[in-house]
Design a protein around this nucleic acid. Structure first.
Length: 414
RNA sequence: GCGGGUGUAGCUCAGUUGGUUAGAGCGCCUGGUUGUGGUUCAGGAGGUCGUGGGUUCAAUCCCCAUCACUCGCCCCA
């Protein structure tokens, strides 16, 4: 049981993975700032209502995937399964309607009790952005452009494609839902078992079924685009025009739907074929009704979230590790002065390291393993004259320099 | 939640048609005479063969269960 294994669906991020994750996060954060998005952080858990009321009771997330528990005070608490609901709650709690429009970036762990698979864990990490307070299609375009830029910075432009669709406003969607329900009900007997279940909960979901028989039925189904009212149509057309103006390629996918109830109008997904069934890498859409639904002032919004693990798996250009400088005392008698030398280097902001044991051979070997750029070798003879040896570990060249000038010499030469 | 695959040293894997001290490569540690790395040579540490039950004189190998990973479905980032 507690076999010193990590809990199912959780993982330790060791040095290499951690560096890669940090890289993904850093790129996402820096790029978001470039677009004027400020970083915020909301709690990792919220009252269960925050998620239950907003995500939609029909979504699997609410129905069976939330980590919900009763806190000591008796309140029902849930580990956040996604980021948008918490941000919306914070928007209301802090009276941020005063500061609209707001552009926010966030990152952090999310929790979903799903069956683990590659690219799907129970604790996973997301980066995301929310553009709150603007109902303009330009906000949608900006947010998508930002997503593109981040993927581009990560070197994934060739890896992914963008699909978009319009879910319409609530009126269009309700209309369409009825038509669709009628159509699928006529064909109910031919639908897959999964889709029969979806018929009651969320008929839109049948549109992106992978079942072949379902797909045949879907191909003749009424299209959402034919049921958009004029407002909805104008909106999605402006978004498409905006993307074209920025030369951001996309495909229209009339069957693209979103799992969470709060989405309307624009829905978009960046997907890859390299991750098997978990191909969605960055996805989002517009959620004009969300904040009002939570009890706040009617406020439009649009945003997306991206899976850090999935992005990290696609990102091959490993970050260069910083190359430290190794301080190597020739004998153990010099270990104290060696400690002082590393401290001097660190005071000068030079990344440096000192092995605590071993003869010179061992210590150089260790320096090599650290991928050190050069070694500062401390020997009795040189020290008598106040000198040390600086050895370039790539070329093997050695020079003798004054101990007092080590930091400067390193800064000048490397 | 449903169906399939896998599980032997830190890593990648071999192996035993059930038999008493379980192997390789890489990695790790130590040493090759006292001041020099990434090569080489020698030596060494490390495994309750995922875990728990069962069958058997005997199980890492057979059976059952369980856990984890993995592929597809579902869901979604």
């Amino acid at each position: 049981m507690s076999n010193l294994q990590p809990v199912r669906g959780t993982h330790d991020l060791l040095a290499d993975d951690c560096r890669l994750h940090r890289h993904v996060e850093t790129v996402a954060r820096d790029t978001s700032e470039l677009y004027g998005f400020d970083e915020v952080a909301t709690p990792i858990f919220e009252f269960t209502d925050v998620f239950a009321r907003t995500l939609g009771g029909t979504s699997d997330i609410v129905a069976k995937e939330m980590y919900t528990f009763e806190a000591k005070g008796g309140e029902s608490i849930t580990l956040r399964p996604e980021g948008t609901a918490g941000i919306a709650r914070a928007f209301i709690s802090n009276g941020l309607a005063q500061h609209v429009p707001l552009k926010l970036f966030y990152h952090g762990p999310m929790f979903r009790h799903e069956r683990p698979q590659k690219g799907r864990q129970r604790q996973f990490h997301q980066v995301g952005v929310e553009s709150i307070g603007s109902g303009s299609p330009q906000a949608d375009v900006e947010v998508i452009a930002l997503g593109y830029k981040i993927l581009n910075q990560l070197g994934l432009t060739k890896e992914v494609k963008l699909e978009i669709n319009s879910l319409g406003d609530s009126e269009s969607r309700a209309n369409y839902r009825n038509v669709l329900l009628e159509y699928f009900t006529k064909h109910e007997s031919s639908l897959s078992a999964d889709s029969k279940a979806r018929l009651q909960r969320n008929p839109l979901r049948i549109l992106d079924s992978k079942d072949e028989q379902d797909r045949r039925i879907v191909s003749d189904a009424p299209a959402l685009s034919d049921y958009l009212n004029s407002d909805s149509r104008v909106f999605i057309e402006s978004v498409e025009r905006g993307l074209n103006d920025l030369k951001l390629p996309f495909e229209k996918n009339p069957n693209l739907v979103r799992g969470l109830d709060y989405y309307c109008h624009t829905a978009f997904e960046f997907t890859t074929i390299s991750l098997g069934a978990q191909g969605t890498v960055l996805a989002g859409g517009r959620y004009d009704g969300l904040i009002e639904q939570m009890g706040g002032p009617s406020t439009p919004g649009v945003g997306w979230a991206a899976g850090v693990e999935r992005l990290a798996m696609l990102t091959t250009n490993t970050q260069n590790m910083i190359r430290p400088f190794a301080v190597v005392p020739v004998s153990n008698d010099l270990k104290d002065i060696a400690m002082q030398v590393v401290q001097t280097l660190r005071d000068a902001a030079i990344p440096s390291d000192l092995a605590f044991s071993g003869n010179i051979k061992r210590r150089l070997k260790r320096a090599d393993k650290l991928n050190a750029r050069a070694a500062v070798i401390l020997g009795e003879e040189e020290l008598k004259d106040g000198n040390v040896v600086l050895r370039d570990l790539d070329s093997g060249d050695q020079t003798t320099i004054a101990l007092a000038n080590v930091a400067e010499a390193i800064k000048d030469n490397y």
